[in-house]
Simulated scan of single mutants.
Amino acid sequence: MSDVFTTRILNVTTGTDETVADLTHDCEQFLQQAARDRDGLLNIFVPHATAGIAILETGAGSDSDLLAALHTLLPADDRWQHRHGTPGHGRDHVLPALIPPHATLPVIAGRLELGTWQSVCLVDTNKDNPDRRVRLSFLG
C-alpha cells in the first residue's frame, strides 16, 4: 500500500486557438514537492469532454503536426451530430476517444521517467472554452 497520495489542480488558459500546451515543467515542479525522491506514479487528468493528454515531442513541429493530423481525422465542418458552439465543435467531443483525457507515468527517484524528447501536453481543440483544469496526482 502506498504511503503518499498528493494531488494538485493546475488552471491552464489555452486561449481561442487550438493548442498543444506543454505541461512538463508544471509536472516536474509538482513532483519536487510531492514525490521528494520517491518512486511512484504521476497521473495527469483533464476533466473536460473536449481535451486530452498526450506524450509527444514539442518545439520541433510535432505539436503542429498533431493539430494538422487532427484536422485531417476530425475536420471542423458540419458532419457532426453534436452541434453547439462554433461550427464543427462536435469534433472536439470526439477528440478524447483519440487522445485520452489522462496519462499515467512512472516516477523514479522523484523525477518523471520520460524519454529524451518526450513532453507531457494538454491537447485542446475547443476554441469555445479557453479555461482548463488539469489534475496532477502522485501515488508513491
Rank of each mutant, 00 (worst) to 15 (best):
D39C: 04
V107N: 10
D17C: 13
G52M: 02
Q118V: 11
D131S: 11
L70I: 08
E18T: 08
L31R: 01
G140C: 10
A51F: 02
F5L: 15
H71Q: 14
Q81A: 12
W117D: 03
H25G: 14
W117G: 04
R135C: 09
G59W: 09
H89M: 01
T14F: 00
I108F: 13
T19M: 01
D39E: 07
D92H: 02
D37N: 13
E57S: 14
S64A: 15
N43W: 00
L67G: 00
V46C: 07
R111G: 04
G15K: 09
V107G: 05
E28A: 09
Q29E: 14
R38F: 06
A51C: 11
L10F: 06
L67S: 03
A35H: 02
G59H: 08
A97D: 05
S62T: 14
P101R: 03
R111Y: 03
A97Y: 09
V46D: 01
Q81G: 15
D131T: 09
L31V: 04
G61P: 13
A51G: 05
A69F: 11
T6I: 14
R83F: 09
R36H: 07
A69S: 14
R36A: 14
I53H: 09
H25T: 15
L136D: 08
H93D: 04
K127N: 12
A68M: 10
T14Q: 01
C121D: 02
V107W: 06
R36K: 14
A109G: 14
S119Y: 11
F138V: 07
T50M: 06
R133K: 15
D92Y: 01
R8T: 14
D128V: 07
R91Q: 01
N11Q: 15
R135E: 10
D26H: 10
T19E: 07
L105H: 04
L112S: 05
V134E: 06
T50W: 03
A109H: 15
V20H: 00
T58L: 11
G110V: 01
V123M: 05
F5E: 12
T13L: 06
Q32A: 12
L139G: 09
H82W: 08
H25F: 14
T86L: 11
I9P: 04
T50R: 02
A103E: 07
D26I: 00
G90I: 03
V20P: 08
G61S: 12
H84V: 08
E28V: 04
V12D: 01
I44C: 02
G15H: 08
D26M: 03
G59P: 12
A109M: 10
H48D: 01
Q29V: 14
D92V: 00
R135L: 04
T16H: 15
E28K: 07
I108C: 13
A109W: 04
L56N: 11
A35C: 04
